[in-house]
Amino acid sequence: MQLSVNREASGSVPAEPLPPALCRLAELPAGEQAILEKLDLPEDDARRLMELGFLPGHSVTAARSAPGGDPRVFRVDGSEIALRRETAAHLFVRCGTPKRP
């Protein structure tokens, strides 16, 4: 199971560089699908997200959002779950193409 526990996950979107193969779920364009790789959140929160279907290895589709793009609805494991951008920024998906720096 790829689950790293980060005790200090805060509301802000962290700025450190990512491994080339990972993209933030928050950056996934509406209508696109990607495979979830890992959840970088405190254990409790990660667990609840997994119970809702955000499991590593499962596919996630970015759907409609509230005006302004936040929060966004994600289709995952047969249901639609809305997440705020600050949360979706801690979920990582496999990139289709490596992101430019």
Partner: peptide
């Protein structure tokens, strides 16, 4: 309080 993640099932 610190912010807790918002997760709402539609």
């Amino acid at each position: 309080s610190s912010r807790t993640p918002f997760m709402l099932e539609m």
